[in-house]
Design a protein around this nucleic acid. Sequence first.
DNA 1: TTGTAAGCGTTATCAC
DNA 2: GTGATAACGCTTACAA
Lengths: 344, 344
Amino acid sequence: MYNNKLPTIKEIARRLNVSASTVSRALHHHPSIGLVTTMRVHKVAQELGYEANKTAIYFKERKTYTIGVIIPDLSEPFFSSALTGIEDAAEASNYNVIIGQSLDNFEREKKIVENMKNHRVDGVLVSLTKETSTYAHFDSLKKYNIPVVFFDRVPNRQDINYVACNLVSGMLQAITKLVNMGHSRIGLINGPAKLAATLQRLEIYIQCLKQHHLPLNQDIIVSTTLAKADNRKAIDQLLSLNEPPAAVIVFNDYVLLDCIAAVKAAGLVVNKDISFISFANLPIWEYMESVPLASIEQFAGRQSSMAAGFLLQLINSAATPNVTEPPFLQHIIDSEMIDYTIAG
Amino acid sequence: MYNNKLPTIKEIARRLNVSASTVSRALHHHPSIGLVTTMRVHKVAQELGYEANKTAIYFKERKTYTIGVIIPDLSEPFFSSALTGIEDAAEASNYNVIIGQSLDNFEREKKIVENMKNHRVDGVLVSLTKETSTYAHFDSLKKYNIPVVFFDRVPNRQDINYVACNLVSGMLQAITKLVNMGHSRIGLINGPAKLAATLQRLEIYIQCLKQHHLPLNQDIIVSTTLAKADNRKAIDQLLSLNEPPAAVIVFNDYVLLDCIAAVKAAGLVVNKDISFISFANLPIWEYMESVPLASIEQFAGRQSSMAAGFLLQLINSAATPNVTEPPFLQHIIDSEMIDYTIAG
DNA sequence: TTGTAAGCGTTATCAC
DNA sequence: GTGATAACGCTTACAA
């Protein structure tokens, strides 16, 4: 019943009274092997249902054809789409994907990195935890020549590889729209300071206000850790101002969902009493009534598959070390994006 | 720069003028190794930053400590939650998870199975494609002693292991509620015939109608392939009847989203002109206005982590073949579920 | 207490 | 054309 003995090259060799190397070569259609032998080998292989044990080959090659993906949370559509993108790219190159969910927990992130190192993945793609502010655990991968590419939630540093979005033009369009509608008091609900995206949003926000000759008011700039309760606190803080902002730029669509709930709870009406612009472009807006004026797509799938492509490139360039070409860092800032207007 | 030479057991042995086996044993705190030697080994290991190459160990053990998960589409929250559940269960047992998205494409499913076989995963969890109606590709895993557990989208057969939901009580509650509200004309939008869930829903539907002494009308039972356009067609068909059903049981929340859109497009109002009951309990209902009267949770995470636990059990029982205990099949029908009422 | 050797499945190198 | 051998990194009888 327990037919534990899978056919191996040796077994085929034994049956045909040839050597294992001959079988190996025959199976690969090596030109130096005679046609008859090759055919006989293939015949027996067929009969036995032989299939090469890739784990042996990978072990020998010191490769696993596996990339590790570390993301905060798969139940966020953004990350599951990202994973889809990665899987597509990986599959096209015959790579496997193993996943680790950090659940926005730094210790878990560290543990996952450790595990992936143990499994000797060929490379790692990371979208950081909200909590992550040190990167030693990733540096440890260097020793193993395991390249790392960050995407979307990237650290605020330059000595790393990352893929992120350029949100400038989209945000400028969105703010222009608000201004044209007569709004001048435009607030910002930003994310945690550790994320590069947070600084980025603030910078663009300031830049856009400047272009429209609008004043910069610190009282309508708040931030959230992205936790649900904190999102509520952030929007409530704005709503409780003597003069609440007429429009708010929100860190992302998930934060916005909570903002909308808070607005409703306060008896106000979205797009009448207050308007929003957000980032992510969730597929569900299409089915909802209270929607942002614009939700700026960050192309989870596109971003992540670019990151995956880049990672695979790094893996291959590490495999064939070219002395003339030093290991390079690259920051891909994807600037093609759409300002997907939903309502307004 | 390319420090390809990672520390190995041999290297440590060389430095200490001991044998590799001594090092191996010392690292595992084997009692037969002297305390001094053990300490010296650990010291050098530490200095070199030695970490065991698990791929070598796994290769030797003929295990990969990896389970493969094949699901239709990660962007469906149901499946991403399922994956989360699986990952949790796997991680607790120090297993890795590699994923494959079939994208509801039979050929892809076959290819993924092939790939997982090549990677010698220790077991496979599957939620089937809409298209899948033959199972030979899974049978091929038997030869490699790779156990398979189906979950949620399980084949309509008994000679397999699976984990699925028992929806009877939830659906009965839901229908009772509709009846109590005065509805007697309750329709059904069912899924593709290949899925066990489809048959299941039909059976329960009939059973519930019977319990309430309601007539069974074929004209208000329609089905969809689950494709968006087809969902629309199904609901439109019901709406265009002379006497449309007052309430409809819908295959799942994704189908329902499209139904709701169609209802609105027809100028009708959900929960006034027509009501719905559905399966899945999407997290987004909380943020929406047009919602089902009840959305019956199928516990993606729970179902899938049960499946994962079961699979791990199978893996372990295969590893220690107990002749007295034949390889067993099991059908886990999870009957604990909630009828999560959202509106009404 | 430690060393030797064989083995996991495959391929590359060298020899005949 | 084909075979023997070594090697990938590690574990484990069996010897000493």
